[in-house]
Design a protein around this nucleic acid. Sequence first.
DNA 1: CTGAAAGCGCTAACAC
DNA 2: GTGTTAGCGCTTTCAG
Lengths: 334, 334
Amino acid sequence: MRDVARQAGVSVATVSHVVNNTRFVSEEASQRVLDAMEALDYRSNELARSLRRGQTNTIGLILIDSANPYFAMVGRHVEAVLYEHNYNMILCNTEGDPNREELYLNVLRSRQVDGIIFYGARTDLSALQRYLQTDDRPIVVIDQDLSAIGSSVPNLLVDNQQGAYIATQHLYSLGHERIACLAGPANSFAALERVRGYKKAMEEIGLVITDGYLIPTPDFHPPSGYDATLELLALPQPPTAIFSCNDLMAIGGMSAAHQQGLRVPQDLAFVGYDDIRLSSYTLPRLTTMAQPTRDMAEIAVEMLFERIKNPQLPPRKEILSSHLVVRDSCGAKS
Amino acid sequence: MRDVARQAGVSVATVSHVVNNTRFVSEEASQRVLDAMEALDYRSNELARSLRRGQTNTIGLILIDSANPYFAMVGRHVEAVLYEHNYNMILCNTEGDPNREELYLNVLRSRQVDGIIFYGARTDLSALQRYLQTDDRPIVVIDQDLSAIGSSVPNLLVDNQQGAYIATQHLYSLGHERIACLAGPANSFAALERVRGYKKAMEEIGLVITDGYLIPTPDFHPPSGYDATLELLALPQPPTAIFSCNDLMAIGGMSAAHQQGLRVPQDLAFVGYDDIRLSSYTLPRLTTMAQPTRDMAEIAVEMLFERIKNPQLPPRKEILSSHLVVRDSCGAKS
DNA sequence: CTGAAAGCGCTAACAC
DNA sequence: GTGTTAGCGCTTTCAG
């Protein structure tokens, strides 16, 4: 910039002003500056700019695993909407590790990001909570209900309980009564809520949950769904339908069913959760509860920007719904 | 920091030195600084630090679409190895748009990232080339051969031609002679190379590529594989095997075959490319050419750091191999 | 309409 | 062993 100023025969301040269009500069001077910028291939140093302005146009996205198709989708959308706002995104994977959560939170703070989208997904909020006590940078938390800790942080939720309820009802409406559930890991907030929805539906319908039908899994990956389904099928009275707390496990489960010589949906029906892209290309195509990932991204960013613009604003809380996408893994009503 | 210094009764320089452990500070003074930091919950401002040191500990990752499972995997691994080095990653999706490529390249430059990993994947290198003329920031280019433009930039390649060759040979070794190919988009460097490998194998074997067997697709997504497979099956002499230039299209293709009442692999065999996580959970499990994504990430970052440490170093060029993962989508040798 | 100067928070060179 | 000072590249008063 100094060079540009010299070459254009103006002050640095003037250069800054034409670059940022922040005050009128004579046509003539402007042109000289522009020419000098062109000639020297000048690019502003955003680092210096950020330091001076106290704004980095950067936000941090913290999630468990960006290779998980569901999170990948969320991340993709967040990046896309940030792009529209001239913001960049630092991506942070926690692997579900509380230490990483806290570390990344603090790294992002050190880096002076303008805001953080936190999708830690675990029930345990202690790392987050500890952080919140030390910093009031704008942050929105997705898919973890903060009411428990009475926090005043914007909170974006999906009604997982309702989603699971709908999924279970769907299975019942198709004639199933022996409905099992792949529960996901106990430390997942979403999983817990979905299990709750499953239980509620079963109870309302008047169905009992047979012993062993509600089966916890160590994680959300296909192998876990595979193993759990095998266990279910080994039961004296195996289920005729399975509600899986996410698509990945449902896909693993369908694979297990197939391996056991069962047909999906005739012998065993599946409903998943998330509606990852590939769910429409499994065999059979997976019926699932679609998460509004695009909306989530848009609203999360919007909530964050509201906070950035006006930190005094009362924190918004938003609850989105999942909707049922009927495909082929449950069969048709007979 | 000023506050910490005041509270500890030392100079700012001293605080800096204990924070960075960059010179001896008396036990006593150190302790006072540490206490003050603790008391004031001090976190260094990385922005200021970066500006002063001329180093941001940030790299940019540019790729087409982080929601694509293959790219998601690469991104995940890159982030993981950067984490080990105390680096952060700004994620940029180009959507295959040359304008975005150039825009992001320049944004990253403005942000003074220490380096860039560029996985643009398109044959057209003009945006990149234009950028390289204006900036010599360390950058490594993945999966696009730079020899053509005689560039002196580190270059990490996968031998796509060989991979496709192996895949095609595998199909032939299983008794297939009518082998078609889902070619991917014409602007994809990897796709072009894979098609080349397919052609080479066919030629060496002495097989002719029936008219219509080499079928271009608009993109790499499942629907494209689905549509293309339908086209192939509508041919007077449909193929008995399909080499798909990526897994996603193979998955779409298997879905199409199923929809047409064909059995995979008995009626139609498939080989994919990438070995995305879900390939082991399709029905049937997909035989595919596995890409060494973990190695790619590690080597790419390593190459980048070499460059960052010593910009004079001659640019390395590294060529990795894909390997065949035999699963169930091709059947067994009869 | 434009320039001078201060300062964002930090580190590195130079003093003592 | 520690303090002082300059300055990274930018923006923003404050003067004129």
